[in-house]
Simulated assay, not measured.
Amino acid sequence: MSLSQAFRDPMSKVSGTIVFFDLVGSTIMKFAEPEISWLPKIGDFLDIISSEVKKEEGGEIIKYLGDGAMAFYHIDNATEAINASIRIQVKLALQRKNGENNNFCKIGISSGKIYSAKTPNDFVDYFGTVADKAQRLCSASEKNGIFIDEATRDECRPNKITSPLGSAKSREGRDYLSKEASLWLKGFSKPVQYFEIIWDEQGFGPNVDAISYTTSGGQLKSNNSEPSPKHDIENHDQIKSNINDRTKWMKGVISANKGQFGFINGADGNTYFFDGNTSIPDLHPENSKIFFHPLPPRPGKRYPIAGNVICIGSELNGTIINKNKERSFCFVSINGARQPNANVYVSLKDEEEVENGDFVSFEIAENQFGPYAKGILRDQ
């Protein structure tokens, strides 16, 4: 039976629970590390998922998705899907604590009627709104989070949900479920109701990259029916160290571009906010590889700022500074920067003769030390 026939056949619908697992920060990891380093880390992550999604509990891995996976559970085993997800998060947390790796995961779970069909390779796959919702809930969660939809809440047996920390705290039944909340998710015409599984000390909340946002008076305003909870940023000391050296460039990748503002996954594993006031010359598209200066959050805001955002490969203009006859390099101060210290390295060995004060055009490139200007051309 072809896929189009299967999708038209009501008999192709089965009742089930779909789980999406996603490795957080894999784009940055691939950008910052050689394949021989990052590929085994992804393999370790997928091995943990495979070890915890058990057939005897009604679950099976349907497919790997590069740096994630999709699993299917029989509808009667929604609780087992939740407990397997908790075990995966606990294992990853223990590995991080023991210094074995630094993998973080987020998980989305949805239940209901879903289309089942065989692929050209004769494997069974699952399609439809339930699968889409599980994937979107996964994307909507912060790292460490487990989001489930209303149907999964209705199908699971809360008194059978368990986690090591919950057991130690004598947590029972619905103590593992957050209050009901809602999110606007891509591909859905109205807010999606969800619950977070509280497997740790507290919940981790939603990830702003996956939520629909509007701007009002320069302030971020979530389309949620109630404000999202604030969560402390991890790695405070690392952020503080980065911010203290405001001349230090950090690598990153544009994870979200909302039109008037966006977010960056920094090489330190944290999320940075940027807008037209901090990007040179303007907002860059999603997945762009960039450098930026980490700056402190604006008053009352959660996210640190990415200042002087420059895209690798972009062509910019600037002014030659700090040239000294006793050394073979200088710097170019980038035009259009709204924060100080927007200076990049220039190797005088590789470029035409320039002098302090010359206006030049150049391309942003990178080496092991950070960004540098190449292809220097003096403006005539």
Rank of each mutant, 00 (worst) to 15 (best):
Q5A: 05
A6I: 11
R8E: 09
S26G: 01
M29V: 03
A32S: 12
K41Q: 11
K54Y: 07
E60Q: 15
Y64I: 06
A71L: 14
F72R: 15
D76C: 09
A84I: 12
A84H: 01
Q89R: 05
V90Q: 00
N102P: 01
N103C: 15
S110L: 00
P120E: 05
D122T: 07
F127H: 10
F127M: 09
K133H: 11
K133S: 15
C138N: 04
E142V: 02
G145T: 01
P164V: 08
D175N: 06
L177I: 03
L177R: 04
K179M: 07
E180I: 09
W184L: 03
G187K: 03
V192K: 00
I198E: 01
E201Q: 11
D209I: 02
G218W: 02
Q219A: 07
K221A: 08
N235M: 13
K240A: 13
I243A: 04
D245E: 13
F263V: 06
D268H: 11
N270F: 00
H284V: 14
G300F: 10
N308R: 05
G318K: 06
K323P: 09
E326K: 15
R327L: 04
F329Y: 14
I334T: 07
A337T: 08
A342L: 13
V360A: 02
E366P: 06
N367S: 10
A373K: 02
I376A: 10
I376S: 04
I376G: 01
I376N: 04
L377H: 07
